[in-house]
Amino acid sequence: MKKIIILILGIFLFTGCTNNQYKGVVNVLNWSSYIPDDVISDFEKEYNIKVHYGTYSSNEELLAKISSSKEGTYDLIFPSDYMIELMKQRELLEPFQKEKLNNLNNINIRFLKQPYDSNNEYSVPFLLATTTIAVNKDSIKDNITSYQDLLNEKYQNNIVLIDDQRIIIGAALQGLGYDINDTNKEHLEEAYNFLMKLKKNVKAFDSDSPKTFLITKEVDIGLIWNAESILAKEENDNIEIIYPEDGYVLSMDNYAIVKGSKNKENAYLLIDYLLRDDICERIIKEYPYISTNKHVGNLSDEEVSVILKNGSYIKNIGEHISDYDKLWARIK
C-alpha cells in the first residue's frame, strides 16, 4: 500500500514539475482544425508563453462559451464576420490595439475594412473560408453543380454536411433561389422541406473533420469547407471541388481580443507571430484556406476576386435566430 502511495506521489511531482517553466499564458479559443499543433508549440518555445488552446465548431458555440464564462477567462478568439458584429453589439470585445502588431502590413488590404467592422476597431482578418461541394468522381459520374443536384435519390446515405445551422439552412435557401440570410417564414418552411428531402441522402453532419468521411470513402459527396475539400483531394485526386452555382458561404474569420482579457500582451504577441509570412505559409499548408497574408497562397488576386464575387456573407439576423434554432431542431 505504501509503495502505491509513493508511486502516486511520484507521478504527482513529476507532472507538477513539467508545467511551471513558462513566464506567462494566453487562453485561446479557435475553430477546430485551423492552426497546426506544432505552430502553437513552436510559439510556446519561442516566447516561453503557455498557450491554453480550446476549440469550437460554430460561431454560436463560441458566443455561448464567451458569454457564459467569467470575464477574463479567454483572451484571443477567432469569430467570423457576423459574429464580430454581434459580439461588438454585446460589448464582448476589447478595442484592437493595432499599434502593438509589427506584422500587420503583411495583410492584404482588400480584406481590411469589411462592413461588419468597417474600421477594424475590434478585429483583424485571419483567414477566409468558403463552403464547397466535394464529389468523389470515382463513384459519382453525374455533373453536380448546384444544391438542387444533391437532392437526387441516387445519393441516399452518401453525403456529409457541415454541422452548422446558419450554413446548411443558408444553403437550402440558396438552393431555392432565396437570399442566404432570408428570414421570411414561408421561405424558411420551404427550406425545411428542402432539407428534409436532403436529409435522406445525408450520412452525417460534421464540422470538425468532414474530410475523413470522404477519404475513408464513407460518403462520396460533401458540403464542406474549402480547406477540407482540398485536403480530401490531396488524398484522392479524383475528388472534384465545386463552387455551387446558386451561391456559397464566405466566412471571414478574425483575430479578436475578448473583453476583460488578462493576458492581452501575450495575445498580441501570438497574433503578431501568426501574422508572420513563414507561419502563415505553414498554416495554409496544413489547412489550405485562403490566407489574408498578401505574400502567401496559391490563388492569384483575380481568382480570389471571383470567389469573393459569387459568395455571400452570413449576416446577424437578430431575434429571427430563434426561427433558425427551431427549424434546425426539427430537421435533426
Binding site: 436529409k199 450520412k203 460534421d206 435533426k332
Partner: peptide, 15 residues
C-alpha cells in the same frame, strides 16, 4: 453522425 438528436444533445445545445 450528428444526425440523431436525443434529449442529451438537446440540453447540451441549449446550454
Amino acid at each position: 453522425g450528428g444526425k440523431v438528436m436525443i434529449i442529451g444533445n438537446l440540453i447540451k445545445n441549449q446550454f
